[in-house]
């Protein structure tokens, strides 16, 4: 179940969260730079008007690890289209997200299914993942105040720790922490917390490479901290920033 979430959400989430950092505003702490300024710099690395990306995802099953390959076309934060390339079973499965709507097409069933209404809010077949989790949130800094709270080392990289605290009620996580590389301005770790302060989810990013004039993490591992297991690992195979995407891509008729 967990991996369903990963399957659907990772291409968006990996994207979405980072994207949203764009809209930060200044909440300066004494000696540290302001949260907004850090997140702005992160955005220069991470965000682009469009991106076309091929990635691989490793899903930890009960017995084995399975790898899924997909190609995504993303424009801004409201539009995303993903097509699965392998394995054979998943080939041709497509997903389209337009604002708050999510459609899935499966070639084996020749059906376009919408995940909507209260289904969005509910967990996917008893998993901890709600369909809502896959959807785009409103800009991060509209919902959170950002503050640099400390400096920490991750591996051998010195990081700013940016703490995000919810200023609105309707957020999935009350607070988040982002470790941002002080030199490259790439996030290396993101933790999601409950209001009680309990760590719920952790995303770690790695294999940061310089490409097309920016630093970009090519690996990302997403883990539900309350569950056992190693989490799900996503690897970027290729990525193209600000390429042209034909308008027809983000159309429902493109699913079938």
């Amino acid at each position: 179940m967990n991996s369903i979430k990963n399957l659907i959400s990772l291409p968006f989430r990996g994207q979405g969260v980072l994207f949203l950092l764009l809209f930060s505003f200044t909440m300066s702490a004494q000696n540290y730079p302001s949260g907004k300024s850090i997140l702005d710099k992160v955005d220069r690395n991470m965000s682009s008007k469009t991106r076309i990306m091929t990635s691989k995802m490793e899903i930890q099953g009960g017995r084995s690890v399975r790898t899924l390959e997909s190609k995504s076309w993303i424009e801004g934060e409201q539009k995303a289209y993903t097509e699965y390339l392998s394995p054979a079973r998943e080939k041709g499965t497509k997903m389209l997200k337009l604002e708050n709507q999510l459609w899935i097409f499966s070639p084996s069933t020749d059906r376009v299914m919408q995940i909507s209404g209260h289904m969005l809010r509910q967990s996917v077949m008893g998993s901890d993942m709600s369909y809502e989790d896959m959807m785009s949130d409103s800009p991060l800094l509209e919902r959170y105040k950002a503050e640099v709270t400390s400096e920490e080392m991750i591996e051998d990289r010195r990081c700013w720790v940016v703490t995000l605290t919810a200023i609105k009620e309707n957020v999935n996580y009350h607070s988040q922490k982002i470790w941002v590389d002080q030199e490259r301005f790439v996030p290396l770790k993101m933790d999601l917390f409950a209001k009680s302060g309990k760590l719920l989810k952790r995303t770690t990013l790695g294999n940061v490479q310089k490409m097309q004039g920016r630093w970009f993490p090519m690996e990302m591992t997403y883990k539900d901290m309350l569950k056992e297991g190693k989490g799900t690992k996503m690897t970027v195979v290729s990525i193209q920033f600000d390429g042209a995407i034909p308008a027809g891509v983000f159309n429902k008729s493109n699913l079938k």
Binding site: S3, I4, G61, S64, R66, R89, I104, S108
Partner: peptide, 9 residues
């Protein structure tokens, strides 16, 4: 969900 955890339709 398939036995390996992927979405199954």
């Amino acid at each position: 969900a398939s036995m390996y955890g992927e979405m199954a339709m």
